[in-house]
Protein backbone atom coordinates (compact mmCIF):
# COMPACT_ATOMS: atom_id res chain seq x y z
CA UNK A 1 0.00 0.00 0.00
CA UNK A 2 1.36 3.40 -0.96
CA UNK A 3 0.84 6.36 1.28
CA UNK A 4 2.45 9.75 0.68
CA UNK A 5 4.87 8.54 -2.04
CA UNK A 6 6.25 5.58 -0.08
CA UNK A 7 5.11 2.05 0.70
CA UNK A 8 3.93 0.80 4.05
CA UNK A 9 7.28 -0.90 4.79
CA UNK A 10 9.06 2.46 4.65
CA UNK A 11 6.50 3.95 7.00
CA UNK A 12 6.94 1.02 9.38
CA UNK A 13 10.72 1.35 9.46
CA UNK A 14 10.55 5.13 9.84
CA UNK A 15 8.08 5.16 12.72
CA UNK A 16 9.21 1.99 14.46
CA UNK A 17 12.90 2.73 14.05
CA UNK A 18 12.59 6.20 15.57
CA UNK A 19 10.48 4.79 18.39
CA UNK A 20 13.07 2.09 19.16
CA UNK A 21 15.88 4.67 19.34
CA UNK A 22 13.75 6.58 21.84
CA UNK A 23 12.99 3.46 23.85
CA UNK A 24 16.67 2.43 23.93
CA UNK A 25 17.83 5.80 25.20
CA UNK A 26 14.90 6.10 27.64
CA UNK A 27 15.98 2.74 28.99
CA UNK A 28 19.49 4.11 29.53
CA UNK A 29 18.04 7.22 31.18
CA UNK A 30 16.11 5.02 33.59
CA UNK A 31 19.20 2.99 34.41
CA UNK A 32 21.44 5.96 34.97
CA UNK A 33 18.84 7.71 37.07
CA UNK A 34 18.59 4.64 39.27
CA UNK A 35 22.30 3.79 39.49
CA UNK A 36 23.34 6.78 41.66
CA UNK A 37 20.40 6.08 43.99
CA UNK A 38 21.38 2.43 44.32
CA UNK A 39 25.01 3.37 44.87
CA UNK A 40 24.11 5.85 47.59
CA UNK A 41 22.00 3.30 49.45
CA UNK A 42 23.52 2.57 52.85
CA UNK A 43 22.82 -1.14 53.11
CA UNK A 44 24.49 -1.52 56.49
CA UNK A 45 22.34 1.21 57.98
CA UNK A 46 19.21 -0.33 56.47
CA UNK A 47 20.04 -3.72 57.96
CA UNK A 48 20.78 -2.22 61.35
CA UNK A 49 17.52 -0.29 61.41
CA UNK A 50 15.68 -3.50 60.61
CA UNK A 51 17.39 -5.23 63.54
CA UNK A 52 16.20 -2.40 65.74
CA UNK A 53 19.67 -1.20 66.56
CA UNK A 54 19.41 2.49 67.26
CA UNK A 55 23.17 3.18 67.31
CA UNK A 56 23.19 4.86 63.94
CA UNK A 57 23.41 8.39 65.25
CA UNK A 58 26.57 9.35 63.42
CA UNK A 59 25.10 9.66 59.97
CA UNK A 60 27.73 10.36 57.35
CA UNK A 61 26.43 12.05 54.23
CA UNK A 62 28.23 12.38 50.96
CA UNK A 63 29.27 15.94 50.40
CA UNK A 64 27.90 17.04 47.06
CA UNK A 65 29.46 20.25 45.85
CA UNK A 66 28.46 22.10 42.76
CA UNK A 67 30.96 23.03 40.10
CA UNK A 68 30.77 26.69 41.14
CA UNK A 69 31.85 25.85 44.69
CA UNK A 70 34.73 23.79 43.35
CA UNK A 71 35.75 26.64 41.05
CA UNK A 72 35.67 29.13 43.97
CA UNK A 73 37.87 26.85 46.12
CA UNK A 74 40.27 26.29 43.23
CA UNK A 75 40.49 30.06 42.62
CA UNK A 76 41.17 30.76 46.30
CA UNK A 77 43.92 28.14 46.41
CA UNK A 78 45.42 29.47 43.19
CA UNK A 79 45.49 33.03 44.55
CA UNK A 80 46.99 31.83 47.85
CA UNK A 81 49.77 29.83 46.19
CA UNK A 82 50.54 32.64 43.76
CA UNK A 83 51.09 35.02 46.68
CA UNK A 84 53.70 32.78 48.23
CA UNK A 85 57.32 33.68 47.60
CA UNK A 86 60.58 31.90 48.18
CA UNK A 87 62.38 33.15 51.26
CA UNK A 88 65.64 34.79 50.36
CA UNK A 89 68.75 35.53 52.40
CA UNK A 90 68.91 39.20 51.33
CA UNK A 91 72.61 38.78 50.57
CA UNK A 92 73.44 40.35 47.25
CA UNK A 93 75.40 37.86 45.29
CA UNK A 94 76.19 39.83 42.15
CA UNK A 95 79.92 39.64 41.59
CA UNK A 96 81.80 42.48 40.03
CA UNK A 97 83.23 41.59 36.65
CA UNK A 98 86.48 43.24 35.73
CA UNK A 99 86.71 44.32 32.14
CA UNK A 100 90.32 43.60 31.55
CA UNK A 101 91.64 44.04 28.07
CA UNK A 102 92.09 40.95 25.98
CA UNK A 103 93.47 41.13 22.44
CA UNK A 104 91.87 37.90 21.22
CA UNK A 105 88.93 39.62 19.63
CA UNK A 106 90.54 42.93 18.92
CA UNK A 107 89.54 44.37 15.57
CA UNK A 108 92.89 45.96 15.15
CA UNK A 109 94.35 42.55 14.39
CA UNK A 110 91.42 41.50 12.25
CA UNK A 111 91.68 44.20 9.61
CA UNK A 112 93.96 44.12 6.65
CA UNK A 113 95.52 47.52 6.86
CA UNK A 114 96.20 47.83 3.15
CA UNK A 115 94.70 50.86 1.35
CA UNK A 116 93.11 51.90 4.55
CA UNK A 117 92.17 55.60 4.31
CA UNK A 118 94.26 57.61 6.69
Amino acid sequence: MNLLFVDSQTWTITMLGYAIVFVALCFLILIFTLVPKILSLDFKRLLRSREGNKNTGSKVKDVVMSGETNAAIAMALCLYFNDLHDEESNVITIKQVKRTYSPWSSKVYGFTNINFPR
Binding site: Y18, V21, F22, A24, L25, C26, L28, I29, F32, T33
Partner: peptide, 11 residues
Protein backbone atom coordinates in the same frame (compact mmCIF):
# COMPACT_ATOMS: atom_id res chain seq x y z
CA UNK B 1 20.67 11.48 32.22
CA UNK B 2 17.45 13.14 31.04
CA UNK B 3 19.47 15.10 28.48
CA UNK B 4 20.08 11.78 26.74
CA UNK B 5 16.58 12.07 25.27
CA UNK B 6 17.75 15.02 23.15
CA UNK B 7 20.26 12.69 21.51
CA UNK B 8 17.36 10.42 20.60
CA UNK B 9 15.20 13.30 19.36
CA UNK B 10 17.88 14.51 16.95
CA UNK B 11 17.89 11.10 15.24
Amino acid sequence: PKLMILGAAAQ
